[in-house]
Structures are given as C-alpha cells and as structure tokens.
Design a protein around this nucleic acid. Structure first.
Lengths: 192, 192
DNA sequence: GTCCGCATGTAACTTGTTACATGATTTA
DNA sequence: TAAATCATGTAACAAGTTACATGCGGAC
C-alpha cells in the first residue's frame, strides 16, 4: 500500500514526471522509501485510474512525451487521512541480523571484514546526511510546517545510521576478541 | 532470497516442522526476520527441491503427519558461504518516515497521538528485549560461538528500538511546540 | 460449545526485482 | 566513441499478504 502513499507524498511536494519521482526516490525521499522506476510507472497508472492524480502530456523535441503528474483533491484528502492514521511497528527484515545469528558457521575473519565494510558504508551515508543537515537546516529551531517534517525525517535517518554504526562497532569488538582467543588457543595454526 | 536463508538459519539451530519454524519467526528470529506460515511452507518445498533440506514424515494420532525438516550438508555449506558474503546497506521502507515528511497535511494533534502510540509500542518491545537480555545473557562477556551471535542480534534489536524511541521523542517535542505556537496565535479557536 | 494450539495446505492478489527495449542529447 | 541523462515502457519472476479450508484435542 505504502508505495502509493510515497508517490503521493512526492507529488504533494511538487508535480513531476515518473522519471522525476524516481530521481527523488534515489535521493532525498529514497533514503526513507525506495522504489524502482518500473514500480513507479506501474503505480502512477493505478493512481490515475483511481483518480488520485491527474497528468498532462507534454510534447518534447526528439524525446518521448513526458507526463507531468499532479496530485488531485482526492489524492490530497487521502494523504491527509493517511498521515493521521496509526502506524504499527513494521516487521523487520534485516539481513545483517540474520547473518550475525549464524555467524559461527562462517569464517570469522571474513565475517569481520564484511561487517567492517557494512559499517563504513553506513558511516558514509551518515556523513552525507549530516552534510545536508548543516547545509539545508542551519537553524532547526526556526523550522515549521512542511520543512519541519522533512528535517525530522532527516534526523531519523541520522539517528538510524548512528545506531547501525554503534551496533557494528559493538559486534566488531566482540568478534575480534573471539578471533584473538581462537588464535591464542592454537598459536601454530598460521594458515587457513 | 533471504527468506530461504532465514529458514536455513532456523534449521541450523535445530530441526523442526514448518509450524515450529513459524513459531520461531513470531518469537526470537521474528524480531529480525518475519514471515507467515504460507511463505514458510512454500519456501520449504523449494529448499527441499534444491536439496538444501531433507525431511522425515512423522505420523501422528488424529493430527495430520508432521514433516520434520533437517538442514542438509549442502544447506549448511550454502549458509556458511552466505554469512561470510557482503551485506549491502538495505534500502529502507519506513512508513513513519514518510508520514512525518507529509505531516503538515494532516491534523497535528492526531498525528501526535498516533506517534505517541508508536513510541509506546516500541518501548513495550524494548522492555521485552531487555528482559531477555537479563534472563538469557546474564554474563555477556563469557559468551562465544552461536550464543554470542544470538546475543549480539538481540543487542541490535535493543539499540534499534532505543533509536526509535529517541527519534519519536525528538519529533514529539517539536510537534508539541508547533501545536502550542498555533494555539497561541489563534487563542479563540477552541474546537476543531 | 467455543476458542486456542497443533499442523498443513490452496488460491488469489499485491509488491518488489531484474532484464530487456527504444531513442535523442549532452559530456568526457 | 563511449558513457550518462532524460523519458517511458513490457515481460517474467520472486516475495509478501490475505483469505479460506481442514480437523483433532484440550482448556475455559
């Protein structure tokens, strides 16, 4: 259901083509909701059939026509209801959690290397987010309305990646100790 | 892909029926990977066709036969490879993030009420997790192997819910201030 | 006598992923 | 001349959700 809402949210910020919505999904909104262009086109078609968006075809030189979609009144009403509706805790699907749970089946040093890569990736994204925070929201206390919501979502992303990094570090420390203990127990085993 | 791995992880901890795996998915493992029983039965069939698990039918009085699944050597090898493989940052799908981004379209006091409910739900789960931590892992420094992995996943869950609560609180403070400002600006508007 | 736990399944549908296809313009 | 950007789409498949179906035994 929520992909529809994600697209409506994007259109509520500004009208745009499927392509442009896709851009947003791989930039700002994309850090909290992802979708491929195929999903977007498919869903736009459905939203149009349901009367939640309208579009205007714009002819272009050389390129195919573009369809600029706009939120309809019905779409805006639906969004307003939706943002005020309850949000149950969403079931999790965390690959890294699963892997950790079975980590002792794999090769620990390799697991550590991959975990560090994961951690660094999160740290990279965190830096990007923190850059945005400083650039776009230098005075967070003064924010209100739409801008405030966007800022708070960004804050959520920052907190989330901080959490990921904290967790990875905790795991890395413990796993490193585990490796050290093993090599201390079998000091002759230098290879494999 | 990863549902297959989730089931293999469960079977690597102990053999079991589809039903029992489902139980695990709504308890321990379920807090990091969720699946319905339909998905599980469907996937078990596929895993069996691929030779990653085997099963033994056990006749029962009155009840239908149960199939106790066991991880095969091939399944164990596949799991070992998988836990050592890279884990890219997974794309996010956060309903609450999306809603926040469009929060100004809805009724703020209602949004606040729902957000508080969300926060409290997370706090409830956090308490459950913390209970487990104390009950099952009273001496975390002494853990190793399989148990250590399970503990670290639980730690991840605890950190995650703490993050959720921190975030919700941050948002609640800001939104409450927003409401106060609005009612200060229009002190006569007591209803609606 | 009704609900809960055990135990497995089918069917229909919605979402999400991956690959392929087209075609002009701009940038390296 | 190879690539990236703009712009839209089809097709096939994998994964996830919801509803329905069966049937015994025990608890309330």
């Amino acid at each position: 259901m929520a992909l529809e809402h994600a697209i409506l949210v994007s259109l509520s910020e500004r009208p745009g083509t499927g392509y442009e919505i896709g851009q947003q999904f791989s930039r700002s909104i994309g850090y909290f909701w992802s979708a491929t262009h195929q999903q977007i086109y498919r869903t736009l078609k459905k939203l149009h059939a349901d009367g939640l968006v309208s579009f205007e075809s714009i002819a272009q030189d050389g390129r195919p026509d573009k369809k600029v979609y706009t939120l309809s009144d019905a779409g805006r009403d639906l969004l307003a209801d939706w943002v005020s509706s309850p949000t149950p805790l969403s079931p999790l699907r965390s690959d890294i959690g699963l892997k950790l749970r079975a980590a002792d089946l794999g090769d620990l040093p390799t697991v550590i290397t991959e975990l560090r890569a994961h951690r660094d990736e999160a740290a990279g994204l965190l830096a990007v987010f923190q850059g945005w925070e400083q650039e776009y929201y230098p005075d967070p206390d003064a924010l209100s309305g739409r801008k405030l919501g966007q800022y708070l979502v960004l804050r959520g992303g920052i907190l989330m990646h901080e959490h990921t990094i904290t967790w990875c570090d905790e795991v890395l420390v413990r796993f490193q100790r585990e490796v050290d203990n093993q090599s201390a127990a079998q000091p002759a085993a230098t290879s494999r």
